[in-house]
Design a protein around this nucleic acid. Sequence first.
DNA 1: TTACTTTTGCAATTCAGTTGCATTAAGAAA
DNA 2: TTTCTTAATGCAACTGAATTGCAAAAGTAA
Lengths: 125, 125
Amino acid sequence: MGVVRKTKSVMTVLNTFEQTGKAVSAVALVEHLQDSMNKTTVYRILDRLEDQGTLHSFMGKDGLKWYAKCDGCSSTHHIDSHPHFQCRGCGKTECLSMDVTIPPIPKHKVDFAELLLIGLCETCS
Amino acid sequence: MGVVRKTKSVMTVLNTFEQTGKAVSAVALVEHLQDSMNKTTVYRILDRLEDQGTLHSFMGKDGLKWYAKCDGCSSTHHIDSHPHFQCRGCGKTECLSMDVTIPPIPKHKVDFAELLLIGLCETCS
DNA sequence: TTACTTTTGCAATTCAGTTGCATTAAGAAA
DNA sequence: TTTCTTAATGCAACTGAATTGCAAAAGTAA
Ligand SMILES: [Mn+2]
Ligand SMILES: [Mn+2]
Ligand SMILES: [Zn+2]
Ligand SMILES: [Zn+2]
């Protein structure tokens, strides 16, 4: 993966995640940072941060890609495997710190699971 | 929803699902049926069949939309709530007939869950 | 500073999925 | 069967997320 540089743009992206503490869609991040960096840059930084184990990603119900901070991952060891909740009212999406136990499936090797819960958040219900 | 017509195109789409017995991505279906009907028609038929409870859909890891036959659903009552397995080798995707129990999440109203398992199928492992 | 390599901006491109509208064809009624 | 209504289709244009190629800019080690 080569050397990783801590550029201004990378720091800006990381700050956004620190501040919100929530999951953010790539699209929303591009929109939010449109005055400070290029769209392509955002996508590439997200890619890199995920490779490094700083962020993890998952697909939302609508097909958009979401990102959130990892907790204890590295480039060689991604341990995030928690469900995500997406509110169908306001769209807010969050990491859930609960364990999902996947029963083994005969003749299948399961690498990981993606569990997305759809519903209404407290504000929207 | 109005009257639903059993057109030639609808029958062709349904036959494809009967024959394969597997989940099919919209993209793959469009490709598969490119000589018999228009892309837009495929997407619209899939929409309608899902509304009617004939098919159900889910998002694959890659962001593509997949469809598979329902078993015992109607337009007013979709009871499909099973996990899906997507092979990262060959891309084959299938419905799993197992139950997923979602523990309640405080202050959240969960409507339904989408569980996607990623791994290797028997052929690919 | 220099030299090397990563990162960025920009414009063009890809690709899944949607939309508007004119035309076709189910299928109920006559 | 023929007529009539309206759902369904084809086609072309469009949308929007994400990617790509390439030249220019900016980290970083020496
Ligand atoms: Mn998460
Ligand atoms: Mn299924
Ligand atoms: Zn909400
Ligand atoms: Zn496979």
